[in-house]
Design a protein around this nucleic acid. Structure first.
Lengths: 230, 230
DNA sequence: TCAAAAGTGTTCGCTATACACCCATGG
DNA sequence: CCATGGGTGTATAGCGAACACTTTTGA
C-alpha cells in the first residue's frame, strides 16, 4: 500500500537526470547503456539516471546516479538539455535534465554494482527506452558543437596517445575524414599538446610519437578566447 | 486555508520556465525585465516566467508565460540551461528551465497586460531576483556561442537593415569591434543577404544600401553545414 | 568648418587544403 | 613481397586583417 506523504497545492512534475556517457575505443565513438530491469520499458536499453533528490543540484544528482549505476566518478559532466514532453514517461509527468560525460572506456569496470552496463557503437545503438533516442541525438549534436570550443576529447583517450589516435577520435566524433599531415599540423599549432620525442611506442609493431594534453596551455588559451577550427 | 490537493510518494520539485528576451535598439544589446509585484523579491527585476503546467512542454510553457507577461508571441525560443540549485528559491525547491528569445524592440507594446516590462541595456542591468544574474550571464554565453553557428540576430533587426546596423548588432552581441569593409565583405561572401541596390534610405540624412536576410539561402547552407567565422 | 557616417580596393601574411614518397613491420 | 601504417614538406588558393580617401549632411 502506497503512502503518499508529499502534498502540494499545485501539481508538480517528477524530475530525473540522465547521463549520456561517451567513450572511445580507438576506432569508433561508443555510448554506455544500461538494460532496464523494471517496467516501464523493461529489457530496453537506457541511459543511467534517476530521480533527483531534494537537497542536491541536478549536476550532483547526475553524478550520483552515474556512480550508483556504473561505478564511474567524473567531475566533468555537461548539461545539454532538458526534456519535458508531457507524455515522455507513461507513469507520470517526468521531466529529465540531461548531461553528457566523456570517460575512458578502461575506467568502466564491467561487473559493477547495479547493472547490465554495456558499450554500444554510436552507429549501432538499439531502440532505447522513453525518448532516449531523441536525447542521444541531441547529446551528439551538443558534443559536436562543444568540440569546436573546448578541447574535449582528451578525457576519452589514455593520458598518452598518438596523433593517429587523436585524429581517429575527432573523425569518429565529427564523422569526417582528415588528412594526416594537415590534422597534425593544426593540432600542434594550437600548442595544447606536449610531445614526447624520446618515448616512442610499439602499438602493433610500429613506432609513433606520443603526446599528452597540456592543461596549463589550455588555461592560458581559454582566457584569451580561442577556437578549434575543424 | 490552503488545500494541498496533489499527493506524491516522493517529494517533487516545482518547475518553472524563464525567458531571457534580447532586443537591439541600433546601439546596444537590451534585455527585457519585469518588476516583481509579489514576494519573494518584490520590487526586484526578473525575467518573465512562471510555473509549468502539467500538460505543456517546457517550450510551450515558456512561450505562454512570455505572452501573458509581455504580449509577445514568438515561435523561436532557445533552451540554454536548467538551473537547479536547491536554495535558488526561498519558498520551496524550484528548478527552472531557461530559454532565450530574440525580438524586435518595436514589437513590444509597452503598456501590455501584466506588467512593468522594461528594456535594460545589457551593460546596465540592476540586481535581479533569485539567481537571475547567473541565468543572464549564462544566456549571454549561449547567445555568443549560438551566433557562430546560426545567423541569429536577424530577428533583432527590422526586415530591411543597413550593413552598419548589422555590424553594430554583432559588435554589441560579441562585445568587439570590426572593420567596416572586412565585416561587409565577410557577410556578403556568406550569401545570406539580399541587397536592394535601388532602394536606398535616409536614416539621419545619409544614404545607405539596404539588405534583408535570405532564409532560402540559409536553408541551403545549413544542409551543407557551415560556420560564421567571427 | 568640423565631426560623423557611408562608399570604395588593395596588400600582406597566414592557413586550409591537396598531394607523394620512403621506411619499417608483420603476415 | 605486399599491405599497413607512420614519418615528412611543398605549392596554391582563399581568407583574415590592416589600412586612407572622398563625399554628404547636420550641428
Amino acid at each position: 500500500m502506497e503512502e503518499l506523504k508529499y502534498h502540494y497545492k499545485y501539481p508538480h512534475p517528477a524530475v530525473t537526470t540522465d547521463c549520456v556517457i561517451f567513450g572511445f575505443d580507438g576506432v569508433g565513438l561508443k555510448v554506455l547503456l544500461i538494460e532496464r530491469g523494471i517496467e516501464p520499458f523493461r529489457g530496453r536499453w537506457a541511459f543511467p539516471g534517476g530521480f533527483l533528490k531534494m537537497d542536491e543540484s541536478a549536476e550532483e544528482g547526475a553524478q550520483r546516479e552515474l556512480f550508483e549505476e556504473t561505478g564511474l566518478k567524473t567531475n566533468c559532466v555537461w548539461q545539454f538539455g532538458t526534456f519535458s514532453n508531457p507524455n515522455r514517461d507513461p507513469r507520470e509527468r517526468v521531466i529529465t535534465i540531461a548531461y553528457y560525460a566523456l570517460v575512458r572506456i578502461s575506467e568502466v569496470h564491467g561487473g559493477d554494482d547495479a547493472a547490465q552496463a554495456q558499450w554500444f557503437d554510436i552507429n549501432d545503438v538499439p531502440a532505447l527506452a522513453f525518448d532516449h533516442d531523441l536525447i542521444l541525438r541531441t547529446a551528439l549534436q551538443a558534443l559536436r558543437k562543444q568540440i569546436h570550443f573546448e578541447p574535449i576529447g582528451f578525457e576519452l583517450l589514455e593520458q598518452h596517445f598518438t596523433m593517429t589516435q587523436l585524429q581517429h577520435l575527432y573523425e569518429a566524433v565529427l564523422d569526417v575524414k582528415f588528412d594526416r599531415r594537415n590534422f597534425a599540423n593544426k593540432m600542434l599549432r594550437l600548442g595544447l599538446l606536449t610531445q614526447y620525442d624520446e618515448a616512442k611506442q610499439l602499438p602493433n609493431g610500429k613506432e609513433a610519437f606520443l603526446y599528452s594534453f597540456n592543461p596549463n596551455k589550455y588555461k592560458e588559451l581559454k582566457q584569451k578566447g580561442f577556437r578549434l577550427e575543424f
